[in-house]
Design a protein around this nucleic acid. Structure first.
Length: 455
RNA sequence: GGAGAGGUGGCCGAGUGGUCGAUGGCGACAGUCUUGAAAACUGUUAACCCCGCAAGGGGUUCGUGGGUUCGAAUCCCACCCUCUCCGCCA
């Protein structure tokens, strides 16, 4: 949500932000509605003031006919007031709906572009000399080269019996999978390694609710707009559905949504609260399963574990004071944490500055980290690091009191630290050996009982 | 799932139709007293919105949303949440 005083002061800047972010919104029309709303508000408030004043006087009137006269007058005022209030409620709905669409203004450094094809590569990293696989080498650019025909993660995982997609689909529908045996253990090792790294760096770990209400979805700015990507809980539970349950009907929902990221829950943790400035920043990490409908992606990334409905993620969430330098420094910090994990895993990656068109409504600055995936012959997005300014904090109502007693909204940031199984794609593909076995990255071995290879 | 109780200001808690945004207590802040502190005493102490340069004025808020009424914390309806007992249960 945006400070409307700023929009009124500089509507052009917000219209420009809409254009850059591909948001269809007429700022002038919104401000006209805003104006109308305030005028109507003034009118109804005047009537309310009169009603309140007279209501206070009524019990002191002793004379009966006088009293009845006043009550009669109030009755007709009440009708006018009610009409005004109803009109205001209607106007309010439209006003709020539009207000929730207002974008924040990207920082000046953000590249302007229409979609992810116009993101700008900022830097690359690759291990000097990869220790990844006994049977592969490292090219000049640090990317792995194989002296055999490398397999993709699906072929590797299927042959090793650590990934089972067909049976996943049998149980959970398209884009479902099982991790099995060492595959499941590898995932947990990665998560645990990441958790340990963040803990050492001062982050507090949360395992949050996986189901969240509308306020949390809206507050973190997934709603309105992202409803189609969220699973809403609500199918009927009648026992007489036979063997296939295909007659199961939608029921009225429990009004909860499965979270697409622990950010929804963890950033909402302090909603409605006011900190003391000395309590900031808060460095939080959420470990959770994440659920995404992936509506509208039919036919896209259908192969393997790249785009699936459910995954596990360690997410960093930071709340800090309302200061651009502070949040910029923390942005680099949480970006650095994710890079530290990839570097420990010796996976080549690059950092891109996400352009305006590929940014969300609320972000003012965003980096993606893309990790090298041999089967894609390119980098694939594995991390997303966002700075929101006070956009989320306004929706969530998270403030702090400065030393001088002033109340301000916090700034919020978040970044993936690791997300699995997508990260298994580069791990399995880069660490594969000629014989089809896969070496376990050395930093993960302590988490797998010292095991060195999956075969 | 069955039965019951309840949601009031930072916290506790009173209030069942009208000068109630709400008695009282605790806490916090300021002052008096004190060398200092404690105690005692005195005072201050909600959030949000609208108008206004400001001083200030007005509105809304007693879980949420509707309704009744000239007037609702108080009456009615729906929903959300919490607690207790029983049942079931990882």
């Amino acid at each position: 949500m945006i400070d409307l005083a700023l929009v009124r002061k500089d509507p052009v800047a917000y219209q420009d932000a809409c254009k850059k972010k591909n948001i269809k919104l007429n700022i002038a029309a919104f401000l006209k509605l805003d104006e109308e709303r305030r005028m109507l508000m003034a009118e109804t408030q005047t009537m309310q003031a009169e009603r309140n004043a007279v209501s206070k006087k009524v019990p002191t009137i002793k004379e009966k006919t006088e009293k009845e006269k006043v009550i009669g007058e109030m009755k007709s005022l009440g009708e006018k007031l009610k009409a005004g209030e109803e009109e205001l409620i209607e106007l309010d709905k439209q006003w709020m709906a539009l207000q929730l669409q207002l974008p924040s203004i990207p920082l000046p450094s953000v590249p302007v572009g229409k979609d992810d094809t116009e993101n700008r590569e900022q830097r690359k990293w690759a291990p000097n000399q990869s220790s990844a696989s006994a049977d592969s080498g490292t090219g000049q650019d640090g990317l792995p080269i194989f002296d055999f025909e490398p397999k993709d993660h699906v072929a590797l995982g299927t042959a090793l019996d650590i990934i089972d997609i067909p049976r996943g689909v049998k149980i959970g529908g398209s884009r479902s999978y099982f991790l099995k045996g060492d595959g499941a253990r590898l995932e947990l090792a990665i998560l645990q390694f990441t958790i340990d790294l963040l803990t050492k760096r001062g982050f507090t770990l949360f395992t949050p609710p996986l189901m969240a209400n509308y306020a949390a979805m809206m507050g973190t700015s997934y709603f309105p707009g992202g409803e189609e990507q969220a699973y809403a809980i609500g199918v009927d539970r009648t026992p007489e559905l036979g063997l296939d349950g295909k007659d199961a009907k939608q029921i009225e929902s429990d009004r909860l949504y499965l979270i697409g990221t622990s950010e929804v829950a963890v950033a909402s943790y302090h909603s409605g609260e006011t900190f003391k400035q000395s309590e900031l920043p808060k460095r939080y990490a959420g470990l959770s399963n994440c659920f995404r409908r992936e509506a509208g992606t039919y036919g896209k990334d259908t192969h393997g574990l790249y785009r699936i409905h459910q995954f596990q993620k360690v997410e960093q969430v930071v709340l800090c004071e309302n200061d651009e330098k502070t949040s910029a420094a923390l942005h680099q910090e949480i970006l650095g944490n994710a890079e530290a994990v990839l570097q420990a895993l010796e996976l080549p990656y690059r950092v891109v500055d996400v352009c305006t068109g590929d940014m969300g409504r609320g972000q003012i600055f965003k980096n993606d980290i893309e990790t090298w995936m041999p089967s894609r012959k390119g980098y694939g997005e594995t991390h997303s690091c966002s700075t929101f300014g006070e956009f989320q904090a306004r929706r969530l109502g998270i403030k702090y009191e400065t030393e001088s007693g002033e109340k301000k909204y916090v700034h919020t940031l978040n970044n993936t630290c690791i997300a699995s199984p997508r990260i298994l794609i580069p791990i399995l593909e880069i660490y594969q050996n000629k014989d089809g076995s896969v070496a376990i990255p050395s930093v993960l071995r302590p988490y797998m009982g010292g095991q060195e290879v999956i075969r």
